[in-house]
Amino acid sequence: MLHIKCPHCGMRSQNEFSYGGDATVKRPELGEEISDHDWDNFVYNRKSLRGRHWELWQHLSGCRQWIKVERDTATHEIFKTLKANEDIS
């Protein structure tokens, strides 16, 4: 079970969180003209990376904040966690 540092609450067990997928995906602006291809990429296509990966988690049974977590998908090592409004550097 992972140990995730919520930027708001501190170290918490994985079972307090739910996983939210790739954190680098950016939703197109409302009303933006967008091709079928680009829209499909946004909705469906995700990379399944081996290695460092920025992903979203929600601290569901805690502060309910969505957070960004940089995790190695192969080793589960967590390098950094950020608040929702902090940019991935």
Binding site: S18, R27, Q58, Q65, W66, A84
Partner: peptide
């Protein structure tokens, strides 16, 4: 609820 929180916190802060 999670859906609303997602858009409020991440997409349209």
């Amino acid at each position: 609820l999670s859906h609303l929180e997602y858009y409020l916190q991440l997409v349209w802060p």
